[in-house]
């Protein structure tokens, strides 16, 4: 059983939902990332999504764009991101790590070289925003051969007819984008999320995480009522952007509050 499967099956047994925070690797500087990952886990993270910085983050709003720019100002490379995961693994053998980013850095490294290095570093899943199922066949095959899950996005616009191809290739969990827009947008409509998730569950057996537009304990609590996992990104990256002072403690405290609200959600 993979680390991701183990997390979801343990949580399911407790009727709890996964909390999945996102930060960008190398933001605000590379030396801090591993400490921040541990801080997220201390706050109650079940899985950590680590952003791989890219020069052209087309699906991201301004907050995560700036995180990428800050990381790239330190010339953070994909190999360095993998080294950060390996360092994180020295003190945390259980929390799954999912890399989230764009196709080109992975393409540049090559699927095989990337997959074997990622597996060796202790990565569990890979979410490539601009690699939809139609183009992902080869990449998914290589990742699977190394025991890595490819995580796919599904969107409000996704028709039922497309769910089959996603279901065939997806591993770990699927990431439902709660709204039409970029990361950090603020127009989450919980009712439409709930009804879409009902449709998704007819076609998918994997756990479903929901992200985009979840900004506080209250919105996390509401999403946790309908989803298997809550993904929080831009709100945390804003915390990083606010300055290094007490950053790890602030991230832990924010997530602990979210965690408490999620666990109080009526089952």
């Amino acid at each position: 059983m993979s680390r991701i499967q183990k997390v979801f099956s343990q949580l399911a047994a407790q009727q709890r939902q996964a909390l999945i925070p996102f930060i960008t690797a190398g933001d605000p500087r590379p030396g801090l990332t591993v400490e921040l990952m541990h801080a997220l886990v201390a706050g109650g993270a079940d899985i950590v999504e680590l952003g791989v910085p890219f020069s052209d983050p087309m699906a991201d709003g301004p907050v995560i764009q700036r995180a990428s720019e800050r990381a790239l100002a330190h010339k953070v490379t994909l190999r360095q991101v993998l080294a950060m995961v390996a360092e994180f693994r020295q003190r945390d053998a259980d929390t799954p790590v999912v890399l989230m980013g764009y196709a080109n850095p992975v393409e540049a490294m090559g699927y095989e070289a990337f997959a074997s290095a990622a597996a060796a570093a202790g990565v569990d899943g890979v979410l490539t925003v601009d690699l939809p199922p139609e183009e992902a066949e080869e990449c998914t095959g290589v990742l699977r051969a190394h025991g890595l899950d490819q995580i796919f996005l599904l969107a409000p616009t996704t028709p039922e007819s497309r769910l089959k191809s996603a279901a065939r290739l997806a591993g770990g969990y699927v990431y439902y984008v709660s709204l039409k827009g970029v990361t950090g947008a603020a127009n989450l409509d919980i009712d439409s999320v709930a009804s879409k998730l009902a449709t998704l569950r007819q076609h998918l057996s994997l756990p479903i995480g929901v992200g985009f537009g979840i900004r506080d304990a209250e919105s996390a609590r509401r999403v946790a009522r309908v989803a298997d996992a809550v993904v929080i990104g831009s709100r945390l990256v804003q915390e990083v952007e606010a300055g290094e002072e007490g950053l790890a403690a602030r991230l832990t405290a924010f997530l602990a509050e979210v965690r408490a609200a999620m666990d109080s959600a009526d089952a």
Binding site: P132, E134, E135, L153, P156, T157, R162, V177
Partner: peptide, 20 residues
Amino acid sequence: PRGHFGQFGGIYVAETLMPA
């Protein structure tokens, strides 16, 4: 039919845009 010119082209976008 899926927009490939040999190894080039294709559709590499976020899921939200695929149906459009």
